[in-house]
Computed example of a mutant assay.
Amino acid sequence: MPAVTAEAVKALVETETSVQLRPRYEGSNINTWIGFKHVNYLVEEAILEHFRAAGLGSRLLFEEYGLGLDVVDLDTRILHAFHQDDVARAVVVPKAPDAGQLLGFTVVLYVERDGKELKAVTAKAKVALRVDGYLERAAVPAELARFTVERIGALTEPGEHHGAEVAVAANTALSEGRGTSGADPVLALLLAGSNAFGWKWRIPYPYCHFNERLALSGYLRQVEEVVDLFLADRGISIKTLLDDRKWIPVVPHSRIQFLDEALMEEDLYTVFTVEEVFKDFTYTARTDFYVVRDGRLVQTATGRITHGYAVFENRRDWSLVTFDDRVVRAFNGEPAAH
């Protein structure tokens, strides 16, 4: 077993690193622009490269020491859009670990435009080294012990409905389509009295890592999907506005924060709540995630996302637009004007 040295840990928590990365082709859904989910993937990959540079790659940490590397808090602001074939220069700067043993980092992504390097993305992240309990427990080196947690989210405050007793409905079987936004007693509780949309969905294997846990990438995919369903439910689906106006949704800010762990094949309740429409230009929404265990709600994550719309003028250029009455009414949950 390779030894974890004090020098490796010192490099991890004190040394800035830089790496070049390209966004993945999958993230380009409209023209050649890269969506927020894949921008966040770049941030996550930069952090993984930082661990590798210190000699503490995620594979080594898990296979040798039984530690799963999880990005458990990611707050990202996008200042300039990425396109296919762009190269990002990612700079990772460690921050002092907080009182809860989580490792902190700031990440900046730079991109070249017209011969100049621009700051395209800024992000703040926290990383947990979670002790694996699925397999036989491994010995954790003393140099890493202060950064490990027995369970993700044990140090965070639960949400409003956390611990509430609930009755569940068996409506996520394969014969039922694996998910629902329809009648469900838990969704009814979570949505009551709010300008929100809810979706119940069975967590599949491809969204998980370290044998059973829903990964950061899975939550990001879930945010993207619930926005898609919310817009369709409000009568302004992405395809509708794309066809009618050549409008595309843009995301200048997103955040995901883990509060607990969500496990493979559990039913995940995702609640998307519109909080504010700002000057008919952007809207902010909160996304909360829950599972039900032993008849009680457990909130596993929360986050926020800021959305706007852009109209594309050609295959390369776009500009932001102001919401019209139809779109504002949809965001506010009001009936369309006639």
Score class of each variant (00 low, 15 high):
T76L: 06
E49C: 12
G68P: 03
V127D: 03
R77F: 04
H80M: 10
H80C: 06
R59H: 14
A99V: 15
Y65M: 05
L48V: 15
K37M: 13
K119N: 14
K95W: 08
T106D: 15
G115M: 08
L69H: 04
H50F: 02
V71D: 01
D98Y: 09
K126A: 04
L74A: 03
A54I: 04
T106F: 09
H38A: 05
A96K: 13
D85S: 10
N40F: 00
A88P: 05
P94L: 04
A128K: 00
H83M: 12
D86H: 09
V39T: 07
K95Q: 13
D85G: 09
D85T: 13
H38G: 07
I34D: 01
R89G: 08
Q101C: 12
A46F: 08
V39S: 06
L79M: 14
F82D: 07
T76C: 03
N40S: 13
K126E: 11
F82T: 07
K126Y: 10
R113S: 15
D85N: 14
K124P: 03
V72P: 00
H50V: 07
A46C: 11
V72Q: 00
E45R: 10
L118R: 02
L102Q: 06
A53R: 12
R113H: 13
I47K: 01
L109Q: 03
V108R: 12
V91M: 02
K119L: 15
V107W: 04
D75P: 00
Y110M: 11
G57T: 09
L103N: 05
E64I: 04
V43P: 03
R77Q: 11
A54E: 03
L69W: 01
F36R: 00
D73K: 03
S58L: 08
V93G: 05
I47C: 03
L69C: 07
Y65K: 01
Y41V: 10
R77V: 03
Q101Y: 10
L67R: 06
L79G: 12
V127F: 08
D70Y: 12
V93D: 05
R89K: 14
L118P: 00
T106H: 11
P97R: 07
V43E: 01
L48T: 14
S58G: 05
D73N: 12
A128W: 08
V91T: 06
L118D: 09
V107P: 00
A96F: 11
S58Q: 12
G55W: 02
T76S: 05
V111P: 06
D98R: 12
